[in-house]
Amino acid sequence: MDGLSFVIADTEETLEAVERLAYEIWNEHFPSIIGQAQVDYMLEKFSSLAAMQNFQKEGYMFYIMKSESHHLGYFSYKLEKKMLILSKLYVHADHRGKGIARETMKFMGAIAKKEGKLTVRLTVNRDNLGSIQAYEKMGFEKISEVVMDIGGGFVMDDFVMSVAIDKLISFTK
């Protein structure tokens, strides 16, 4: 996508922009998948300003995907021993299907390769079919399933997906 840039969210102001994006995107996309009560719970627990500031202390990086003056979405990752853990990748509904996720993966693949990581790993809700298909098109494969209690009476029922850095980079060129 022309004009796409990635802006690191490392200030209170930019993290608040991520928080606003999260609330908008999640409330548009996820109620039909996990229900509004779980959306509300997960936004507070994982995407509030305070939650993101705590995640930053654990090594997570947050970015805004931007085109000119529009915020298109956001993503977050953490570098671990041999992999880049993609924690969040959310594109605003108005901008899905335009190659933004692919360009974001190219960006993260370059970071992972530079840092000597071998794979990119993520979790995705097993009922989030559009995202699963998009990840599979980029070379990700389902490697396991996980059901995680996240508190509040809710669970995350996810596939764990992974792709080798070299495969991801060759795909996204």
Rank of each mutant, 00 (worst) to 15 (best):
I85Q: 15
L129N: 08
E19W: 06
S144M: 15
M105D: 09
V18D: 04
A37Y: 01
L15C: 06
I33P: 07
E103V: 08
H29V: 05
F55Q: 15
N125K: 08
A22G: 01
G73V: 00
K137H: 07
E141T: 01
R20E: 08
N128Y: 03
M105I: 12
T104D: 10
N128V: 08
F46D: 11
K113W: 06
Y63H: 03
N125G: 08
K81C: 15
S87R: 12
M42Q: 15
R126F: 09
M65C: 12
S69T: 13
N54D: 03
D40W: 09
M65Q: 11
M108W: 11
E16N: 14
V146Q: 15
E19I: 05
I64L: 15
I100Q: 01
W26L: 04
E145M: 07
K137T: 01
S76W: 07
I33G: 08
K113T: 03
K137Y: 04
L84A: 09
I34Q: 11
N27M: 06
Q36M: 13
E16S: 14
E103S: 10
K117G: 07
I25D: 05
E115R: 05
K137A: 07
E141R: 00
L84R: 09
E145C: 07
S131N: 10
D40S: 14
S69Y: 10
Q56C: 13
H71T: 06
L21K: 01
R121Q: 11
K106C: 04
I143L: 02
I34H: 12
F75K: 06
F62K: 10
F107Q: 07
E58Q: 01
A93D: 13
L79A: 03
A93G: 12
A112L: 08
D127E: 09
L72P: 03
A101R: 02
Y60W: 05
L122P: 08
M52F: 04
E58G: 00
R96F: 00
R126W: 06
L86H: 12
E24A: 12
I100N: 01
R126V: 05
P31H: 05
G116D: 14
K88N: 12
S76L: 09
L49H: 02
E103C: 06
Q133M: 00
E80I: 14
E103A: 10
F55A: 14
